[in-house]
């Protein structure tokens, strides 16, 4: 791939507006609709069963209602023969077993248990707190690391880019009402790691160029740095996206939302590493004095 010369930074105002709108929509959706928290976070009971042949969901609903289980959600899960029954909080831990017995006793189609889960309300709440805390902790540590290795402006730029990615990924899940469970949280945290990786590569090039091209204006220098790293950014994102698409299609229902979160996050992360972080650096008026005196190249000796 030839090094391109696209005037990315000429579009900075338009792009900033675009990002701003996306973030607003995401926050708006999360404020009004919230996230569709899964069982892991809300607590409750879930039973997944596999039928020999596809059952009528209405029959299952009626059967359960007849046995006194109201307020249950019965859905297909992945395939027409797999059925998930979800129940809200107000039940006991043995409920999953009872529901299974009820379904099995009906007896015209063979039913087998795939999984049953019960999560106490307390545990769910703790997980939500822990998840949020983990996310904040990750951001703070990343900010400190980048501030030490680079400079404070870089650290603000990359963390804002991260928050941007996380908010938009969460917004996507909120807007399209996709279930947000523990694996999705893991994926969002992985997006933090991934998008950071991308942003660091760009920042690293900007830092390097500040040292080599001493006479170039910050604006041109940032633009040049993005162009230089563009090939790598696209190829890496592409290989990762290949893998994720495969996971999304062939990985099974259990990691469906997980791979979806990563797909969205990585697309956004790639976009933000090109546009958001660099944009912010310019907005904060980054200049070569910020990186002077240059930090020692302490890794020179360990080179392979």
């Amino acid at each position: 791939m030839k090094v391109t010369n696209i005037p990315f930074m000429a579009m900075r105002k338009v792009v900033a507006l675009f990002s701003f709108v996306l973030v607003l929509i995401s926050i708006g959706s999360m404020a009004t609709k919230g996230l569709q928290f899964g069982l892991d976070f809300t607590g409750g009971t879930l039973v997944e069963v596999a039928y020999q042949e596809a059952p009528k969901l209405d029959d299952i609903r009626n059967l359960l209602a007849m046995n006194g289980y109201e307020d249950v959600v019965v859905q297909n899960f992945g395939s027409p023969t797999d059925v998930v029954v979800r129940m809200a909080n107000a039940y006991t831990p043995t409920l999953g077993d009872e529901v299974l017995v009820t379904l099995q006793n009906k007896g015209d189609i063979a039913v087998s248990l795939q999984r049953s889960e019960f999560v106490g309300a307390q545990v769910g709440e703790e997980l939500r707190e822990q998840g949020g805390l983990g996310m904040l902790l990750a951001l703070v540590i990343v900010m400190i690391y980048v501030a030490v290795r680079f400079q404070f402006k870089f650290s603000v730029a990359s963390v804002v880019a991260l928050i941007h990615d996380v908010i938009i990924t969460l917004g996507f899940f909120s807007l399209f009402e996709i279930e947000f469970d523990l694996t999705v949280l893991a994926a969002v945290l992985a997006v933090v790691g991934y998008s950071l990786n991308d942003t660091i590569v760009v920042c690293d090039r900007i830092r390097e160029n500040f040292r080599i091209m001493r006479d170039t204006e910050s604006y041109d220098l940032v633009n040049e740095s993005i162009n230089q790293t563009l090939g790598r950014t696209l190829i890496t994102s592409l290989t990762t996206l290949f893998v994720l698409v495969v996971l999304f299609i062939a990985g099974g229902e259990a990691i469906h939302n997980f791979s979806l979160a990563l797909l969205v996050g990585i697309v956004i992360g790639t976009y933000s590493s090109v546009f958001v972080a660099a944009n912010l650096l310019l907005a904060m008026n980054v200049k070569k004095e910020d990186l002077m005196p240059p930090p020692k190249e302490e890794f020179e000796d360990e080179l392979p």
Partner: peptide
């Protein structure tokens, strides 16, 4: 010249993975 970049980028991702390990349970 690629080494520092790889190092920085991987260390930060590793930090996030460690946090994930600390707060996560089971599958996570």
């Amino acid at each position: 010249r690629a080494f520092t970049t790889i190092f920085d980028a991987n260390i930060t991702t590793l930090l996030v993975a460690v946090i994930l390990f600390a707060v996560g349970t089971g599958p996570v």
